[in-house]
Simulated scan of single mutants.
Amino acid sequence: MPLLSRARLTPNVSVRVCAALGVLATGAIAYFVATDRLKADQAGVLCAAVLMSLILMTIVVMPAHRLSGIFRHVKSFKMAGIGVEIEAYGELAKLRTSEEPDAELPQHSDTLLDLKVRLEAKLTYLAKHVLCTDADPQHLIPTFLTVGSLSYDGFLTREQAKRAYEILGMRDNEFQGVPAGERALFLAGGNKFVDTVRAEVFGSFVRILAENAGWDARRVYPADDQRRDLLIESRSAADTLDIHHVVPVFSYRRNSALIEGARQRILKSPQTAGEGRGVIVVPPRSKAADAPERRAEPPAIAVVTSDHILNLLGAGDG
Rank of each mutant, 00 (worst) to 15 (best):
R66T: 07
L115C: 05
C132V: 14
S286R: 00
L126T: 01
R207Q: 12
S286N: 01
P248G: 03
E87T: 06
D224I: 03
T133C: 08
L3H: 12
P142G: 07
Q107N: 15
H139Q: 12
I86F: 06
E260D: 15
A48L: 13
L56Y: 14
T124Q: 14
T10V: 01
L168M: 11
T10R: 04
V84D: 00
A300S: 12
L51R: 11
G203M: 00
D195H: 04
D216W: 10
M170V: 02
A188S: 10
F205P: 01
A40Q: 14
H139F: 14
K128T: 12
C132H: 04
Y31Q: 10
V17I: 11
K162T: 13
A188W: 00
V197E: 05
A28G: 13
T305D: 10
A43K: 02
R37C: 09
F32T: 09
E182S: 10
S76G: 11
A103S: 14
Y221W: 13
V45F: 15
M1N: 14
P101D: 09
I167K: 03
P137S: 07
G181A: 09
R96C: 09
P101N: 08
A199V: 02
A300M: 06
V249R: 00
A238K: 07
E275T: 10
L241R: 14
K162Y: 12
R295N: 06
G69S: 05
A48H: 13
E99D: 11
L156V: 02
I280Y: 03
E200P: 00
L113G: 13
A300W: 07
Y125D: 11
L187F: 04
A184T: 12
T133W: 10
R285E: 13
F32N: 05
R228P: 05
V279N: 03
T143H: 03
W215V: 00
L9M: 11
K94S: 12
G148F: 13
S236Q: 08
A28W: 14
A257M: 08
M57G: 13
R295V: 04
V197I: 09
I243R: 05
E211Y: 05
E159W: 10
M170H: 04
Y125W: 14
G83V: 09
P2I: 04
M170Y: 04
F202A: 01
V60Q: 13
S68A: 14
T35N: 12
A20K: 06
D239C: 09
P270Q: 03
L241P: 09
A19D: 15
L24P: 05
